[in-house]
């Protein structure tokens, strides 16, 4: 169930990771589906939700596999052999 009306974070959408954006989007959807709050507030949530969905889409579209290699107790970038 929704916790609050997503006031707590309100980080700019462009700074959110995919997981953060998706979690907030999920929350907004359940808030909007769950109650008949004030219209003005609802429209703000809706706009935020739209921006979050777009952010998720962009992140999925742009995702590139990151490959690292274990080096001792850390991981360093791994250069793949080209064909």
């Amino acid at each position: 169930m929704p916790k609050s009306t997503a006031k707590k974070t309100e980080k700019p959408v462009e700074e959110l990771s995919y997981e953060e954006a998706l979690a907030e989007l999920e929350n907004i959807v359940s808030v909007l589906e769950g109650e008949q709050g004030q219209l003005e507030e609802a429209i703000k949530l809706f706009e935020r939700g739209q921006a979050l969905a777009a952010r998720c889409g962009v992140l999925l579209e742009a995702a590139e596999l990151k490959v690292k290699q274990v080096a001792g107790d850390t991981a360093v970038p791994f250069e793949e052999e080209s064909e």
Binding site: Y18, L59, L60, A63, E64, L65, K66, V67, K68, Q69, V70, A75, F78
Partner: peptide, 10 residues
């Protein structure tokens, strides 16, 4: 799933 991070232990 290009979102994933891969760590290779060769």
């Amino acid at each position: 799933l290009p979102l994933v991070e891969v760590i290779l232990a060769a």
